[in-house]
Each structure stands twice: as structure tokens, then as C-alpha cells.
Amino acid sequence: MTLGPAGVRRHARWTLRTGAALLAVWSVVALLAPVLAPYDPTALGTLGADSYRAPGRTHPLGTDEFGRDVWSRVIWGARVSLLIGAGVALLASTLGAAVGLVAGARGGKVDGILMRAVDLMLAIPRAYLVLLVVGILRPSLPLLVIVLSATGWMQTARVVRAAVREIAAGPYVEAAHALGLPPWRILWRHILPNAAAPLVVSATAMVGQTILVENALAFLGMGVPVPTPSWGAMVEEGRKVFPGVWWVSVAPGVAIACTVLLCNLTGDALRDLLDPRAGESGGGA
């Protein structure tokens, strides 16, 4: 199927609305977990009697080894994943944007040093770095956010730097210089807002990526400490009894897949809408 620019935009608008709406619903569910979850996600049932109950009337998604309600744990797990995803996207994007802005606007030596730092960071596999730090220090939610941000800002820095360089060489920035505006003012009012589109797109994409990494860490036992429910850890717990007791792994697995898919769809739709090359929305010269 091929779509013209207008078709691409219509499609993107629809995807964006749907994706953003579902993400918002999911976030509200996570936020209201204490109210919405039918059971305490950490309350242990009677061992044996409550273990591995199949999905049914009392437990919509069954129970795990310790008799804990899987549906309640999935809802609570959304809190951790979305919080880490959004937190890292915010922190890493801010850091990356700051580095990219300075590098792109200053150019020369500053640019060289910052971009070599980016290359260096990208040359070290992220998983090693994260596992090393989380392995040495005790894993906790703030530590995960910090470590994942510190290892996740480089792509943003590159994207922002490229956008800033292109904008800074453009006619309206030259005109702003010719009008005698101060450089920091040009950077803040004229360059940064025009680099916002790629920044927003990369930040949205980062939410999904981060949730994947966070759950992979949890799967490896390096995520948020027990008993806080985390999807990755739940998948791992169910691995031993899979596929006989499928619901313990499948429920959090589907939650991960759906959440990441929603983030990526929203990010792609945003890119299609914000990229000027994807077509004009009519009007204008």
C-alpha cells in the first residue's frame, strides 16, 4: 500500500491518537494500581493450595508459585516499567539534548571532544556497563533510572547535534545574528524550538527501548529488588513451569510487548507528523 503525503499524515494522526490514548489509559491503570488491583501483589497465599491456580473467576490471570494474583502483579509491574521508561526518557533526553545543543552550536574543539565522548560511550556495550554498575551497587529504582540514563543519552546527543548544526547554518539564524540578537538568545529561542521535533521523537522511542532493557535486567535478576513486582522478573519466575503453567510468564510477556509496541507506534506516528518532509498539512505559502 502506498500513501501520498496527505495519506501518511492522516494515518499518522490516527495512529498517534490511538497510541497515545491507550498509553494514557495504561498509565492511569498503573497509577491507580492500589485501587484497581484486586489483590495485594506481594501477599503470599497458602503454599500448595493457592500455587499455580489457573485463570478463572477469582484470579483472572491465575496465581504464581507463591499464590500471588498475576493480574494484580501485572498492574503493579506497569508502574515500575512506565516509571523507569518515562524517567529515563526524560533524564537521558535532557542530558543528550544539552550535549547535542552545546556541541552543535559551539562547533570546533568543544564539538570534537563531546562527540568523541559519545563515540566512546557507544563503543562500550550498554548491557556490560549496566550489569557492572547494578551488579556492584544494590539494584534500586533510582539507581536503575540513573544508570540507564547515563548509558542512554548518546543517540539523542547525535540527533540533536545534527539538527542544531543544520538549523544554525540556516537563513533565519543568520538573520537573527544580523539583527544583533545575543547568541544564547538565538540558541534558546531560535535553534532549540526548531530542533524539538527530532528530540520529541527520539524521547518517545526511548520509552519503549528502556522498558525492554529494564525488563531484560529484571529477567536476569538485576532489576528492581523483590518483592516489587516487575514484568521481567515474572517472566523469569514462570520459565521453570512453562508451558504447563503458561499464564505466569505469558501475562507479563504480553504486557511488555503491548507497552513497547504502543510506545513505538506513538513514536513513529510523531515522527511522521513532525518531519516536515512527510508533507504539508495544507495552508501556508
Binding site: 538573520a175 539583527l179 524550538p193 526548531n194
Partner: peptide, 14 residues
Amino acid sequence: MVFQDPVASLNPVL
């Protein structure tokens, strides 16, 4: 100073 391309020499987001 005014420039050759009037549309491009104005900031599109302001």
C-alpha cells in the same frame, strides 16, 4: 539587513 529568501529568513516557530 534583509535577505534574499524572505520566508526562510524568518523563524518558522515564532
